[in-house]
């Protein structure tokens, strides 16, 4: 029922005023060094004195979820945004299980399944402890790693399962925006995998195992095109709704990744004027993640003394 989120959406309208604009991102980029950039972010209410860039960015991520938790009684509708973290943690847990050591800091805190649970389930080989969406991938990836020691294939199995879980959860949510997010995340993930696998001379079987099914791309055609090389892949993409990706991929993978994020932001922008429903809230979460990612890119660039033009090329479009 759309009436359910009227309070939350109006509150988010107020919070949208605090989102970072493109102009601010340019100011951030014009900072002479990382310390000055951090100071600008602090002026905007990001973090406190003495906190490192990563601490500030992690805090901002946590703030976003805190805001949403206060506004939405049932947070499970936004689990789709946390699935990527879950599958990242699964990768980490599998590798940690195999190395039989502890590696602090390899897990991401925000997720729908505690990483300790994953670790325990893998150690005990009790895959029933995993949610349905992860069970099969966890077993298959662990088996592959135990039998072949092929870490790349293990990662690909998990990545494919993650994309599939995101797409299916988006579709099942009943929210147009979450369905779109799931599909776009799956499409851009598949294109990325196909491009990289094609470059590395992987065969079709590997690609079919790595690509997740989606509605607006044909998995078989994409895999077939990727094994025939870059030109065949680009020729295939030219025939899809994602032909704009070709120019970006021709430029660099970083340009393609920026294009993926920009495409999502373009698609969610109409939510700025939607007064009802879950979609404006989902759009706010994505907008916040996007600005945190952009801030991270700028801060990392400043830390490593990268030229401003190079950093600018990676700055994402902003929601506001």
């Amino acid at each position: 029922m759309t009436d359910k989120y009227i309070y939350a959406v109006t509150s988010i309208r107020g919070k949208e005023l605090k989102l970072l604009s493109r102009t601010f991102m340019e100011q951030l980029l014009a900072s002479p060094d990382e310390a000055s950039a951090l100071s600008l972010l602090r002026d905007k209410g990001w973090g406190e004195d003495g906190q490192s860039a990563e601490e500030i960015l992690a805090l901002e991520e946590e703030k976003t979820w805190k805001v949403i938790r206060e506004l939405v009684p049932d947070m499970s509708v936004f689990d789709v945004f946390l699935y990527e973290n879950d599958f990242h943690n699964l990768k980490a847990a599998i590798k940690e299980t195999l190395t039989q050591g502890t590696h602090p800091g390899i897990y991401i805190g925000q997720g729908t399944v505690p990483w300790e649970t994953m670790q325990k389930a893998l150690t005990e080989r009790d895959f029933g402890k995993f949610p349905e969406r992860m069970k099969h991938a966890a077993k298959e990836a662990l088996d592959v790693l135990l039998t072949t020691r092929d870490g790349q294939l293990c990662d690909c199995i998990i990545d494919s399962a993650a994309l599939d879980a995101i797409r299916q959860a988006g579709k099942a949510s009943g929210s147009e925006l979450l369905a779109l997010y799931g599909e776009l995340r799956c499409v851009t993930g598949d294109i990325n995998i196909a491009y990289r696998a094609g470059k590395n001379g992987k065969d079709k079987a590997f690609l079919l195992r790595s690509l997740a099914p989606c509605e607006t791309l044909n998995r078989d055609s994409l895999a077939e095109a990727a094994v025939h090389g870059e030109d065949a892949l680009f020729a295939y993409l030219e025939r899809t709704p994602y032909k704009a990706a070709v120019a970006e991929l021709s430029d660099s993978v970083a340009a393609f990744e920026r294009w993926c994020d920009d495409l999502l932001i373009e698609k969610i922008r109409p939510q700025r004027t939607n007064p009802f429903g879950l979609d404006p809230l989902a759009a706010y979460i994505l907008a916040r993640r996007n600005e945190i990612k952009t801030a991270r890119i700028i801060l990392t660039g400043k830390r490593n003394d990268l030229p401003d033009d190079m950093i600018r090329g990676r700055i994402r479009k902003t929601y506001v």
Binding site: I6, A8, T10, R13, G14, K15
Partner: peptide
């Protein structure tokens, strides 16, 4: 009632 929910959301921010 509907407008009241929105009004409360607005006042919570400002």
């Amino acid at each position: 009632g509907r407008a009241g929910q929105a009004a409360a959301g607005a006042v919570s921010e400002d």
